[in-house]
Amino acid sequence: MAIEKALYTATATATGGRQGTAQSSDDRLKVQLSTPKALGGDDGAGTNPEQLFAAGYSACFIGAMKAVSARNKVALPAEVSITSEVGIGPHANKPGAFGIAVSMKISVPGMDRAQLEKLVADAHEVCPYSNATRGNVDVTLTIV
């Protein structure tokens, strides 16, 4: 998928893989990385790529919901929250490869259910993470 023009470009460097560090070019993000025991690591104090992906996708999806609600002149309560789970494991269709699956639990207290379902569906169409993963990652959206 191509974009017409980059409005913003983030730059980060990882060193040492899953047992290393990652840092953004502006030094706003500096994290120690650790591999979870389930993936053969020591389950150290650092974060991991799946946690970073879960946080980024959740935040981005809320941004997409805000953009869609503003465009449609629909009030979006401030209490929006999304809990994302990112699972990693052997790819179902590529022997030797790994894939991820995402499950998002979307909470918007006080919003009409039918209106929220439409908003979530529309946000899934415009969210950059959704567009980047579409067709490659199983994404489940659940309204709670």
Rank of each mutant, 00 (worst) to 15 (best):
M1N: 13
A6C: 03
Y8K: 08
T11W: 03
T11L: 12
A12C: 11
R18K: 08
S24C: 10
R28P: 03
R28W: 09
L29G: 05
Q32E: 13
T35A: 12
P36K: 02
K37P: 01
G41D: 03
G44F: 06
E50I: 08
Q51E: 14
A54L: 06
Y57D: 01
Y57E: 01
S58T: 08
C60S: 15
F61V: 00
G63W: 02
M65A: 01
K66C: 07
K66F: 06
A70P: 00
A70H: 09
R71G: 10
K73S: 13
V74K: 10
A75R: 12
S84P: 10
E85F: 12
G89W: 02
G89D: 01
G89Q: 04
G89C: 04
H91Q: 14
H91G: 00
G99H: 05
G99C: 04
G99R: 00
M104G: 01
S107M: 10
V108N: 05
G110D: 08
M111C: 01
R113I: 13
L116H: 00
E117T: 15
L119G: 00
A123D: 08
H124V: 05
H124Y: 03
S130T: 07
N131V: 09
N131P: 08
N131K: 15
A132K: 00
T133H: 04
R134G: 07
R134H: 10
V139C: 06
V144W: 05
